[in-house]
Every structure is written in C-alpha cells, then in structure tokens.
C-alpha cells in the first residue's frame, strides 16, 4: 500500500514528464520547422518521449538531455517522411510559384550580392536564426522535406530516389529549387540588407 502511494505521488513526475516540461517546446519547434503540420509535430514529440522512456538506459550523461532527445526526434522525422511519401504522387514542384530570377535570355535580372560573414558567428545571432528559420518555413513542403534530408541529414541522392520513389532528375530539380529559393530569401532578408553587410 505504501509502495503504490509512492508510485502515484503527484509531486514526483516521471522522467518523461520532466522532459516534456523542460524540452517539450524545443522538440515541438524543431519538429514543426521540418514537418510543417502542428498535429504531426505534436505526435512526433509524443513518440519521441515514449521512445526515450523505453530506451532511457541508452542515455548517458555525456550528451546533454536535449541533444539526446532531439537525436531521437530526428529519427522519428525521417521515418515520418519515408512513411508519408509512400503512395504519394511526386509531381515536380510548380515553377510558377517561385519568382523567376532570370530574364527571357536566361540572365540574372536580380542583384546577386556576395554573402559576407562567418557561418559560425551568424548562427550565434538570434535575429539571423529567425530569418533562416523563416526562410526554411517558406519552402514548399515536399521540397523542404527532400532538402532537409539531403542537406542536413546528408542522405545521398540515390537513397532519396529509392526511399521517396522519385526519379533522380526530379530530385536534382527539387533540390536546386530549394537551394535557389532559400538563397534568394536569405539574400532579400539578410545578406542584401544592412544587417548582412
């Protein structure tokens, strides 16, 4: 009787509840930037905490708790992309949605300023991180998924084709559009402005 009273003691939350309080917002923000849909992001946070709870022996103090949890979340996000792209059609992303940077003869019609600064110190600035997150959010969903898997996770193009069932040419095109759009967004909102100079 004594033991059960201790177990249900409301003042000592389970480790997972503690993680939810300490890292729930960070996990959610991380997932939301990548999967876009709040209900999916919420589910991923839950799955992550459940997986963390089941495997908490794997946690050693050498990595910080949040880094460990985000590591689990990353796997969950990749799984989600792989599952959700099965059976979906992969029409190439509509070019009409992106403003054309070139004129009829294929020459630049916008300014292409040099990007100045050091990536390390830029990422230490919260204002820059906000701009970057905002630009990533503006990428269309499918393109963003592929881009994230390729650039951040370092997934090889061949693997992307197999996993997502897209032709190689389509993958290259989508990645190119993602990079172009992101570059243009960062140029307009940071590198081409007084903040970036």
């Amino acid at each position: 009787m004594h033991a059960s009273a201790t177990l249900s003691d409301p003042v000592s939350p389970s480790p997972a509840e503690q993680w939810l309080d300490d890292h729930g917002d960070a996990l959610y923000g991380y997932a939301l930037l990548r999967v876009r849909r709040s209900e999916v992001a919420e589910d991923l946070v839950q799955e992550t905490l459940l997986a963390a709870l089941a495997g908490k022996d794997g946690f050693s103090a050498r990595s910080a708790q949040r880094t460990w949890l985000i590591g689990i979340l990353r796997h969950k996000i990749v799984d989600h992309f792989r599952k959700s792209s099965r059976g979906r059609s992969h029409a190439a992303y509509d070019e009409a949605n992106s403003p054309d940077l070139f004129d009829d003869r294929g020459a630049w019609k916008v300014a292409v300023p040099a990007w100045r600064g050091d990536p390390h110190s830029l990422l230490e600035r919260a204002e820059f991180r906000d701009v970057l997150a905002d630009c990533l959010t503006k990428l269309p969903g499918r393109v963003a998924e592929m881009f994230w898997l390729r650039e951040a996770e370092g997934v090889e193009t061949e693997v992307l084709c197999q996993e997502l069932g897209v032709s190689a040419a389509n993958v290259w095109t989508m990645l190119h559009r993602a990079r172009s759009r992101l570059r243009q967004c960062l140029t307009l909102n940071w590198f081409g402005t007084s903040a970036g100079r």
């Binding site: 960070a26 923000g29 830029l122 951040a152």
Partner: peptide
C-alpha cells in the same frame, strides 16, 4: 550554415507546444 545549424540542433520554429 545548414550543417552547422543542424549539428548544433539550434534551429527550430519559434513556437511552443
């Protein structure tokens, strides 16, 4: 930039759960 951002796990949407 993206490699560093991912490595440091610092990039997320500024929204709370």
């Amino acid at each position: 930039l993206l490699h560093l951002a991912e490595h440091s796990r610092m990039l997320g949407a500024p929204c709370g759960l």
